[in-house]
Design a protein around this nucleic acid. Structure first.
Lengths: 154, 154
DNA sequence: TATGAAAGAGTGGGGCT
DNA sequence: AGCCCCACTCTTTCATA
């Protein structure tokens, strides 16, 4: 995806929608002083160009019965491309996994999970991660709190 | 937030909306074989109960001119509650910061950033992170790839 | 609690500037 | 590009079961 040229209006739209993604087109147009059709056209353009990837709901893991979040650092024994990708796929497909970072450095993967209790966390580590022969070790860090930053528009 | 009691229908709604958050209420109702009004009430209930926290758009950082993502691990010298919170606030308010994990363990914070190039990354580390006296050290890991997992419903 | 129907609100295309 | 208009779709309220 190449760098898109965005004018000031595009940035305003993105800023507004970043605050409230469920803003109606009518409300968004009113806020920016645009005609509704113009606004709708712009937003569609941003989606078509891939600037807005998609719209997602955020669930409250605790309310759903998974109050314990952790980051599991995964270190590999070797870095054969094929095995790394297979592991990546496996991690992403593991229940209770929220996101998986594939990183360069001391660790190879950072796995963000939400589980019901410590036992469930142990099960994930033992049954879904260290079972893979390519995994050399893991280190788990409890997540006290997770907050969103200002993002790329900040 | 206490654990909410969710029936099978609630879970189906959450699963459907997790796939496509921009599904119209009409389409959602049709998919689940519900009356539109019933479906709307259910969804509103899930929002009111906090099960659905909010709706967000996901921006493509690369398209916006920030193609380089990294995780910056931050380690503290001491852990006075007040200073830790102040640093947390500062990290979250830093431009280009996507999310900040406050974790227990070797590291204290994991800062996920998206920047335009290596120089910008260095500037964040030097000017926004290591400037805080409480920060004892950082370690930066380039993010090759980031994928979403199955989530808590998986 | 779920439903259907009707009133109200929002959307998006066409023709125009 | 942006705007206005209008037909269409979707949402929401309400009476009813």
């Amino acid at each position: 995806m190449a760098k898109a040229q965005l004018d000031e209006l595009d940035l305003q739209i993105l800023a507004a929608l970043s605050t409230r993604a469920d803003l109606t087109n009518k409300a968004l147009a009113a806020r920016l002083g645009l005609a509704e059709s113009t606004c709708a056209h712009r937003v569609r353009g941003l989606r078509d160009r891939g600037v807005i990837r998609d719209t997602r709901i955020r669930l409250d893991a605790a309310t759903l019965g998974y109050p314990l979040e952790a980051i599991i650092k995964v270190r590999l024994a070797n870095h054969t491309g094929e095995k790394v990708n297979a592991l990546f796929d496996a991690l992403v497909a593991t229940p209770r996994v929220l996101q998986v970072f594939h990183v360069a450095g001391v660790d190879d993967f950072l796995v963000h999970v939400a589980v019901q209790d410590a036992a469930a966390l142990r099960d994930i580590v033992l049954e879904h991660i260290t079972v893979h022969p390519v995994v050399r070790g893991t280190e788990t860090q409890l997540v006290f709190d997770l907050r969103d930053g200002r993002g790329v528009l900040g």
